[in-house]
Structures are given as structure tokens and as C-alpha cells.
Design a protein around this nucleic acid. Structure first.
Lengths: 188, 188
DNA sequence: GTCTATAGGCAGATAGAC
DNA sequence: GTCTATCTGCCTATAGAC
């Protein structure tokens, strides 16, 4: 059983705090308290908060990309692939969080250039993956779209992210599931 | 020409800052500096930041509600009404902001009970208004939905809010407009 | 209503011992 | 790598003069 490094554990806690409260609403102190270490130790691994944020985004993108690759490998059907994608987002909802990148988009104005760049690439990558699903589904006839797959992919992602945002004030579990079904019914 | 009260001007600046940076990323100092007054003066009008936030939400809800009433009064067609609604959201996008309530939803965990309540009611009200449009459009045949108007209304709002979030990292003006068109084409 | 002055605490960050 | 100690500055909030 490989021990996780301190640097990784810091990212775990930071990511959880960030997806729950936002980038400007957690501090090195919060992380330090939760891990039983001192803030100076965190600065050793991540000198500035922008460094921490960038590391957060890089790891998140990697994990996300590998999950998407796995989904594509395990599912032939385009519709099933998109369902799996929506399950990924729904699991965030169940933890009362937001997608890290949706949260950071709301904090966009206060981010470092490096973080802004990572954020942009997250959205581009996710949308490209969705677009590929839509193209495949269009070919085999399971989707019908009057707009370009690229645009529909953007709308698809935006809808799921928006559902996380809009359902946050409510404790209704069925909200996300109903919305997801409606979204998929609008695609066919 | 009626002079705006200091209390109102404070809300103007606070709302702008909040929709741009988020509730935890602006301070009484920021507002004071922009208005050329002192932070103590702001505390006179809004003793705590939660008070300020609640006033912000109450006024936003009122303004939003009156705009929706106006849209309904000036447009018979359900589809046109929803287009006007989407224009409201697009105007936020053009200022590189988020809807105040979407922004505050991302800050949800750190809000006062009063603010959480206002937030919930904003979404309920907006969704109810959209649902009424969808019902009218369903009756006259301009919309076809396989899911309940209530659920579709939630998806509709979430999509527009999500598009603001997801387009924030990009400077592409056509993103929102393309997405909006795709959204409407998915309704008919 | 607005100001000066100040409180008490937290923020990110650094120097240097171990 | 982690610690103690400390810096500087910002945060929300209050007391009391004008």
C-alpha cells in the first residue's frame, strides 16, 4: 500500500475545500489544521497559493482525462458514454460540491495567469470529448441535432455544471436526476 | 432627477463587485475606495456583511421580478418571452459577470441563513416563471417536451447559468449566442 | 451620517533553527 | 521537510467625536 506523499495529501484537502467553499474562501491555515501540520510546511510544497491552485488544476485535469479515457474504453455506445459522463458530475453533486473548474470559473477574476490557462484547457478538453460522443451518436442515428456537435457539446457541459450550481440551494436529490433525464431526452 | 441614496449606491458597487469576484472576494474597503467614503460609513448602513448580502439579494430579486413582469406584459408569445429571458442573462455575460445568484450559490457554504433563504427563493421564482412560459408554449404547440415543464424549466435556467460559468474562461462572444440558439432548438 | 481611531483576528508569506 | 517566530497587510466590526 503506497503511502501518499504530503504534497498529495495537501492537494486532497485543498481540493475538497475549494470545491466546497471556493478558492478565496479557504486558507493555508484550514489545510494545516485538518492535516495537523503547520502552514509553513505547506509553503514548502507550494510556495504561493497560485502554485497550489495550479497544481490543483493540473492534477484535476489529469484525473478527469483518465476517467474519460476509461469511459470510452469501457462503453461502445455514445449515449452510454455521455451517461457515464453525467454520472461523474452527479457524484460531485452528491458530495454537495461543485466541479473544481466551475468553482474556479466563478473566482476567475482573481486567478493567476497559470490557473486561467489550466481552466481554459479543462473546458476545451471536456467539450472536445463530449463533441466526439455526439459525432459518433449522430452517425449511428441515436442523436439528432440541428446545431453543430461542438455547440451542443458546450451546451451539454454548461447544463450539467449549471445544474450543480442551481441545485445547491435545494436539498432535493431528485433535482439532478430529473434534469439529467430531460437533458438526454432533448438530445434525441 | 432623484438623487440615489448612499445606501443604494453602496449596493450598486457591492453588486458589481460581487457579480465579478464573488462574495468572499470583495471587502468594505473596496466599496469605500470606489465611493470615496470610509468603511465605517458602510457599516452604518449595513452593520454586517451578511446584512449587506441580504439587502443585495432582496433588491436583486425585486429588480429581476419586475423585469420578468415587464417581459410578460410586452410579449404574447411564450417563445419570445423566453428569448427575452435569455437576453437578460446574455447582458450579464457581456459585462463579464455572473448572475448574482449563481455567484452566491458557489459561495453557498459561507452564507448566512438569511442569504441562503433569499437565494432559494430566487431560483424558485425564476423557475416558476419559466415553467409558465413552457406551459403556455406547450398549449399553443410551439414547444414539445417529453418531460414535465417544471423539470425543463430547471434545465433551461441551469443551462443559461452554466453557459455564463463555462464561457468565462473564453473571450469568444459567439459562444453564448450559439449556445442559446442550440438550447432553443432543443425545445421545439 | 460620516468621520477618526482602533480593536482583534486572519491572510499569505519568509527567515532560520532543527 | 517540518518547525517556531515573525512580518506586513487586510479583514470585519465598534466606540465615540463631529
Amino acid at each position: 500500500m503506497a503511502e501518499r506523499s504530503t504534497a498529495d495529501t495537501i492537494l486532497d484537502v485543498a481540493q475538497n475545500l475549494c470545491q466546497t467553499r471556493g478558492f478565496n474562501a479557504f486558507s493555508y491555515r484550514d489545510i494545516a489544521k485538518e492535516l495537523g501540520i503547520k502552514t509553513a510546511s505547506i509553503h514548502y510544497h507550494y510556495p504561493t497559493k497560485a502554485d497550489l491552485g495550479e497544481a490543483l488544476l493540473i492534477r484535476y485535469r489529469q484525473k478527469f482525462a483518465s476517467e474519460l479515457t476509461k469511459i470510452r474504453a469501457e462503453n461502445d455506445d455514445a449515449r452510454k458514454q455521455l451517461k457515464c459522463f453525467s454520472n461523474l458530475i452527479e457524484s460531485i453533486r452528491k458530495d454537495d460540491k461543485l466541479c473544481l473548474c466551475a468553482m474556479l470559473s466563478s473566482d476567475f477574476e482573481s486567478l493567476s495567469p497559470g490557473m486561467k490557462k489550466q481552466l481554459k484547457e479543462f473546458f476545451s478538453d471536456a467539450e472536445a470529448w463530449i463533441e466526439a460522443c455526439l459525432l459518433a451518436g449522430k452517425k449511428d442515428g441515436s442523436f439528432s441535432m440541428s446545431k453543430s456537435p461542438k455547440t451542443v457539446a458546450q451546451v451539454f457541459l454548461a447544463t450539467l455544471q449549471g445544474m450543480l450550481i442551481c441545485s445547491r440551494a435545494f436539498s432535493e436529490d431528485e433535482r439532478f436526476e430529473n434534469g439529467r433525464e430531460a437533458l438526454f431526452s432533448m438530445l434525441s
